[in-house]
Lab assay of single mutants.
Amino acid sequence: LAALHAEGPLAGLPVTRSDARVLIFNEWEERKKSEPWLRLDMSDKAIFRRYPHLR
């Protein structure tokens, strides 16, 4: 499970980098069924690119 911001401008976004990794992994797991070539990237760089508020 990932903790998400409940309200405000960040509502629905992950609270920590660990939470972001959970979301990225879950999405990758779903997408790899139809796109088996996808690589999993959970590096800090990938997290910041996707969720800049975690910098």
Rank of each mutant, 00 (worst) to 15 (best):
L1K: 14
L1T: 14
A2W: 04
A2H: 07
A2P: 14
A3M: 14
A3H: 15
A3P: 04
A3F: 11
A3Y: 12
A3K: 15
A3W: 11
A3T: 14
L4E: 05
L4V: 13
L4F: 07
H5D: 04
H5F: 14
H5M: 05
H5C: 06
H5K: 09
H5I: 09
A6C: 12
A6P: 11
A6G: 12
A6Q: 15
E7I: 10
E7N: 12
E7Q: 11
E7K: 10
E7P: 09
E7T: 13
G8E: 06
G8D: 04
G8Q: 05
G8F: 05
P9N: 08
P9H: 08
P9A: 10
P9E: 12
P9V: 09
P9K: 09
L10G: 03
A11Y: 13
A11I: 11
A11K: 14
A11Q: 13
G12M: 06
G12L: 04
L13H: 04
L13Y: 06
L13W: 06
L13N: 03
L13M: 09
P14F: 02
P14E: 00
P14A: 01
P14Q: 00
P14H: 01
V15P: 02
V15I: 14
T16I: 01
T16K: 07
T16H: 08
T16W: 03
T16N: 11
T16E: 07
R17Q: 12
R17W: 11
R17Y: 11
R17D: 07
S18Y: 14
S18P: 05
S18M: 13
D19F: 03
D19R: 02
D19M: 06
D19C: 06
A20N: 01
A20F: 08
A20H: 00
R21V: 07
V22Y: 10
V22E: 06
V22M: 13
V22G: 03
V22I: 15
L23P: 00
L23A: 05
L23N: 02
L23I: 12
I24F: 06
I24P: 00
I24K: 00
I24Y: 03
I24A: 02
F25T: 05
F25A: 07
F25V: 07
F25N: 05
F25C: 07
F25R: 11
F25D: 01
N26L: 15
N26M: 14
N26I: 14
N26F: 12
E27A: 06
E27V: 04
E27Q: 07
E27S: 05
W28N: 01
W28L: 02
W28A: 01
W28V: 02
W28Q: 02
E29H: 13
E29S: 15
E29K: 15
E29I: 15
E30V: 12
E30A: 11
E30K: 12
E30G: 08
R31Q: 08
R31H: 07
R31F: 06
K32Y: 09
K32W: 08
K32T: 10
K33F: 12
K33C: 10
K33Y: 09
K33L: 11
K33I: 11
K33D: 09
K33S: 10
K33T: 10
S34F: 12
S34H: 13
S34C: 14
S34L: 14
E35M: 07
E35V: 05
E35A: 06
E35G: 03
E35K: 07
P36V: 04
W37D: 14
W37V: 06
W37T: 13
W37N: 15
W37C: 15
W37I: 05
L38N: 05
L38R: 08
R39P: 14
R39D: 12
R39T: 14
R39A: 13
R39G: 09
R39S: 12
R39L: 11
L40I: 06
L40K: 02
L40N: 02
D41R: 02
D41L: 03
D41T: 03
M42K: 02
M42G: 02
S43W: 02
S43Q: 02
S43R: 11
D44C: 10
D44V: 08
D44N: 12
D44A: 08
D44E: 09
K45M: 11
K45S: 14
K45C: 15
K45W: 11
A46D: 05
A46I: 09
A46E: 15
A46M: 08
I47Y: 01
I47R: 00
I47W: 01
I47H: 01
I47V: 12
F48G: 10
F48A: 10
F48K: 08
F48Y: 14
F48I: 14
F48R: 07
F48Q: 08
F48D: 15
F48C: 10
R49T: 14
R49F: 12
R50G: 03
R50Q: 10
R50W: 04
R50D: 05
Y51D: 00
Y51L: 07
Y51V: 00
Y51E: 00
Y51M: 00
P52A: 03
P52Y: 01
P52F: 02
P52I: 02
P52L: 02
P52D: 02
H53A: 01
H53P: 00
H53Y: 07
H53C: 01
H53Q: 02
H53E: 01
L54K: 00
L54E: 00
R55V: 13
R55I: 14
R55D: 10
